[in-house]
Design a protein around this nucleic acid. Structure first.
Lengths: 171, 171
DNA sequence: ATAGTCATGTAATGAGTTACATGATTGC
DNA sequence: GCAATCATGTAACTCATTACATGACTAT
């Protein structure tokens, strides 16, 4: 149910936008915490319009439809932000594998954890590299996006440290 | 595609088990990193048997079917552990909301983060409380489960610290 | 003209959730 | 006898992924 709110949120920040615009915005912001595909996005826009949470406010060339959030949509966004508590569902096939490392030799198990540590380091570097870029933004999305970026940073560091620690626990 | 491997993994550790057995095992171990419902589990067992990755090795009272992993299944588990790289797809509606905190008043935004910090603290306490229980286990699942538990612990602590930090960032 | 980008959609399939349905066996 | 637990399954629905399909406009 969250893609729906992601779209409402973006529209509430942007004023109005087409599916195409939203898709690009998605890719550089929300995709990191809530991936979605193009086809999912378009069908969600259809459903939101049907439900009266957004309106087609203008049509442009190439069948472009510009959507705007309605009052009803704004209310729903607010309700979601303040009243619906986040579901903490974590799915990690990286951790799932850890449960079964006993099926491998200690060397193989260590190699697995070592790879994970390395990937976390890479991720850390990557996040540091985009930190500078995001620093420049000034809207709400950038301001709060920085908080999310910091979260990612801390997460990657934890992950790296954990993987290094875990490797030492074996054998 | 991971539930399939979760089941194979459990069966490879347990020797043999019924859907019902696996379900209970799931709830106390893997459910934290890969939740699954009863109906999902049963239908996955059907598909695995069909694909020849597991066999019905015995039938008991109440229609109980005991499954055992086959050589083919073991090979597939090993392949997944050593060759398939974990997909790092993170979905967090908790973080998704952060992007849109600008739609709320600073007080409301702070309240949101403060609640998240508190939830992380609770989670941390919870994990500490079960640490003693898990300490006792001796099989592979327990041994490696402890590594996963430690991960959860570190994650919860990071989350708590981040939420407290983020709260301070808001004017 | 033609490459690049803008722009929207459909179809098929798989994964996940919720609710329902049914009944046998065991322990007290 | 009855409650608890064991035990398996189906149906309907939503969400997510991948691939396909189509075409208009813009800048050079």
């Amino acid at each position: 149910m969250s893609l729906r709110h992601a779209v409402l949120g973006l529209l509430s920040e942007e004023g109005s936008a087409s599916g195409y615009d939203l898709m690009k915005l998605f890719d550089v912001s929300l995709a990191n915490v809530w991936p979605a595909t193009q086809s999912q996005l378009y069908s969600e826009l259809g459903k939101l319009a049907e439900a009266g949470l957004i309106d087609v406010s203008a049509e442009g060339p190439r069948g472009r439809k510009e959507y705007t959030i309605t009052e009803k949509g704004r209310a729903e966004l607010r309700r979601w932000l303040t009243e619906v508590e986040p579901t903490r569902v974590v799915r990690s096939d990286m951790l799932l594998r850890v449960f079964f490392l006993g099926r491998l030799s200690p060397e193989e198990a260590k190699a697995y954890l070592s790879t994970q540590a390395q990937l976390a380091r890479k991720q850390l570097e990557h996040l540091e590299s985009i930190r500078g870029v995001v620093e420049g933004g000034s809207g709400n999305l950038s301001t709060y996006g920085r908080l999310v970026l910091e979260y990612g940073h801390r997460l990657a560091r934890s992950q790296q440290e954990w993987a290094e620690w875990a490797e030492k626990q074996i054998g």
